[in-house]
């Protein structure tokens, strides 16, 4: 890495970010009405890092993930993606909400995979994959289809291109969903419990695709209960509880030698 890459990037907001940080969360709060779900999250995801987020249900890990691509609007704090403040712009010391189209533009570089797949049921598998490139990025149809077929091949489903989602198994649907997110050529992939809705025997195929993606150098934030995956593929592991980051570090360290009581209690209940 050259000197200039190491240097800090001066953002328009005046905050200093290390140049290899793709996501920086600073004191992120989120409340739903009077219920405070996130109570001040500070995190950094470096380029190429695979970060696994674990924790009991209701700990706010999915909400945090959804804050990264602004599916949830922060109540307080800041979140930068690729040096850009997500969802807001700062003018004369005040935050202004971005318009719908501006937020949409920011989201283009962030892929997201959902627990319940959320494939578009009125489109075929290939139709799901090429929809956004054609509609949002104005990629010519033929080119998008060619690229879409490559992606379906990559997730092991080239023969399912013309099939509608309801005729696919959960595992196949999730792999199409991953291909759909990759079609936008994102810099960051968010996974929201991608295997939690799957039959146990289908989990492996999806994890294989994700492992492959991590090996290819994709930056990933993965909310998961798959401790084996976190240990093997993750570069870092974050344990969240009650809207806060309790503990984080290299997965092997956190999993083998948890420092915090709550981490110990959680891990003792999880089989892996």
């Amino acid at each position: 890495m050259s000197e200039s890459d190491e240097a800090v990037v001066e953002t328009t907001e005046g905050a200093e970010l290390p140049s290899d940080a793709l996501v920086v969360a600073e004191n992120v709060h989120k409340s739903f009405g009077r219920l405070e779900v996130l109570k001040g999250i500070d995190l950094e995801v470096r380029r190429g890092e695979v970060m696994c987020v674990v924790g009991p249900s209701g700990s706010g890990k999915s909400t945090f993930l959804r804050c990264i691509n602004h599916l949830e609007k922060l109540t307080a704090g800041r979140l930068w993606f690729d040096g850009e403040l997500m969802g807001f712009h700062q003018k004369r010391g005040r935050l202004h909400e971005l318009r719908d189209k501006e937020i949409a533009a920011q989201r283009r570089d962030i892929g997201m995979v959902f627990q319940r797949f959320n494939l578009f049921p009125h489109l075929t598998a290939l139709g799901n994959v090429v929809e956004a490139p054609i509609q949002v990025n104005r990629v010519p149809r033929a080119q998008a289809v060619e690229r879409g077929m490559q992606l379906l091949e990559r997730v092991g489903l080239p023969d399912k291109a013309d099939v509608h989602p309801e005729q696919l198994s959960g595992g196949q649907q999730q792999r199409v969903a991953i291909a759909r997110a990759l079609a936008m050529e994102p810099n960051l992939m968010l996974f929201d419990e991608p295997t939690s809705a799957l039959d146990p025997e289908l989990v492996g195929d999806v994890l294989d695709v994700m492992r492959d993606l991590a090996r290819g150098g994709m930056t990933m934030v993965v909310v998961t209960h798959e401790m084996g995956f976190a240990r093997e593929v993750g570069d870092s592991l974050v344990f969240m509880d009650d809207g806060m980051v309790v503990e984080s570090g290299p997965p092997a360290e956190v999993l083998n030698d948890p420092q915090h009581e709550r981490t110990q209690a959680f891990l003792s209940k999880v089989l892996f």
């Binding site: 691509n69 599916l71 949409a104 533009a105 920011q106 989201r107 283009r108 962030i110 892929g111 997201m112 959902f114 319940r116 959320n118 494939l119 578009f120 929809e131 956004a132 509609q135 949002v136 969903a177 759909r180 997110a181 936008m184 968010l190």
Partner: peptide, 11 residues
């Protein structure tokens, strides 16, 4: 979830 998936794709 359909709207969210589409939003996440930048639509």
């Amino acid at each position: 979830g359909q709207t969210e998936a589409a939003q996440a794709l930048g639509m």
